[in-house]
């Protein structure tokens, strides 16, 4: 394969250069990344999700997520015709190992992947007493684990249950939208491994991003819109019973 590797260097010089920086772990020298040129979001296409749990496993691998906690997880919904407001939901180990077969008992069944919504008016950053969690200029909500007190107010403030306290660092933790990847031209780990393309990273400031066409032509909503958090994870084809 050495020959092909050399071919890679010839064929994809830009990718190869990026990869060099990626491996060196020096984002400052990542070529051409400007914070103000991006506004990150994600699209979840519910009709495409097969509940395989690849995203949950990839997230844990990529981000060293401790066992039993989840930066992303998948829920299985069962909505019976009689109780649209009372769906039955389960997420065994966050859907990390997929879902056991279920008996069909009328109503509809579907999967809903969840992750931090990287809200533009995020309640979690609002309540942080010290500025240890914040929205970056490119629209990602991050936690500064060297500055976090571990007061857990942000965990309480998140309407979506996306935050937890890492038992090793004793600080708040959550999805970073794979900030270390997206700043280097890669997609997030969850989007990278999604076999059906149910998860798509999107850059709203990039006029060529297919997200614009998608948002124009589909019925898209966010989770708990009444919370008015400016959530930036858009769900296509989401049932009204999802919360």
């Amino acid at each position: 394969m050495d020959l092909s590797r050399r071919r890679l260097l010839m064929l994809l010089p830009a990718a190869a250069v990026a990869w060099k920086y990626v491996e060196a772990g020096t984002p400052e020298s990542s070529p051409n990344y400007k914070l103000t040129d991006h506004w990150w979001a994600m699209l979840i296409d519910i009709p495409k999700c097969i509940g395989c749990g690849s995203c949950v496993r990839a997230c844990a691998n990529e981000n060293d997520v401790p066992e039993g906690y989840f930066r992303t997880w998948v829920e299985r919904y069962h909505v019976s015709d009689w109780k649209i407001e009372r769906p039955e939901v389960e997420s065994p180990n966050g859907g990390k190992q997929g879902f056991p077969p279920n008996e069909e008992s009328g109503g509809k069944n579907f999967f809903v992947p969840k992750l931090c919504n990287h809200c533009s008016d995020s309640p979690c950053t609002q309540v942080c007493p010290v500025g240890a969690t914040f929205s970056t200029p490119d629209g990602v909500v991050l936690v500064d684990k060297t500055y976090c007190l571990g007061c857990r107010y942000c965990v309480q403030a998140c309407p979506y249950g996306c935050r937890f306290i890492n038992p090793k660092t004793n600080t708040a933790e959550k999805c970073t939208l794979c900030y270390h990847r997206i700043t280097k031209g890669l997609t997030t780990a969850c989007c990278e491994v999604c076999p059906t393309g149910a998860r798509q990273l999107a850059d709203l400031k990039n006029p060529n991003d297919p997200i614009h066409e998608f948002l124009r032509t589909h019925t898209v909503q966010v989770l708990k819109p009444h919370m008015a958090t400016g959530a930036k994870v858009f769900y296509n084809g989401m049932d009204g019973s999802v919360r």
Binding site: Q126, V127, C128, P129, V130, G131, A132, Y147, C148, L149, G150, C151, R152, Y153, I165, T169, N170, T171
Partner: peptide, 23 residues
């Protein structure tokens, strides 16, 4: 006692976040 990092609690006075009720 309940803070994950009690040694950082002084940050509450050093860099208080104005929008935070706790700060």
């Amino acid at each position: 006692l309940h803070l994950g990092h009690p040694e950082r609690s002084f940050e509450m006075y050093l860099t208080p976040h104005r929008s935070s009720a706790m700060a």
